[in-house]
């Protein structure tokens, strides 16, 4: 193991996050799968839904920063160098993008399935 071993990274992340590692991982997989499914079914990117999802995504980004501040017992006024601001940006960006994808997927799935129900109602 002369090089950085991904299994070491995984072991540390599992120790750090416990069950949350799998919960968040599952959420990420569901979010991405849902997003891809919605895109495949609708064959277009709904700009209105995307804007709404991005607005929710901003809240997700802020949430990621608040969570990070909570678990690290610190605040963002503690940033002391460029790497700190870069990491803060990445945390915000990660929260924003993840939440946006998830929100878009949920919105799309709701739209698709409610649309099907409507169609079923019309048939009967």
């Amino acid at each position: 193991m002369d090089e950085l071993d991904p299994t070491v990274m995984l072991a540390v992340l599992l120790e750090m996050m416990g069950a949350w590692f799998w919960i968040l991982g599952l959420l990420a997989v569901i979010g991405i799968a849902g997003f891809v499914y919605v895109l495949a079914v609708e064959r277009t990117l709904s700009s209105r839904r995307l804007v709404r999802a991005e607005l929710i995504g901003v809240l997700g980004g802020i949430g990621a920063l608040v969570l990070m501040a909570y678990v690290t017992l610190s605040g963002f006024t503690d940033a002391g160098g460029p790497i700190d601001w870069l990491v803060i940006g990445l945390i915000f960006g990660g929260g924003l993008v993840g939440t946006t994808i998830l929100a878009y997927a949920i919105g799309g799935l709701v739209s698709i399935f409610s649309g099907r129900k409507d169609r079923l109602k019309h048939r009967t």
Partner: peptide, 9 residues
Amino acid sequence: LEELWVSWV
């Protein structure tokens, strides 16, 4: 040798 938040994290 810099006082950094990431090191605290």
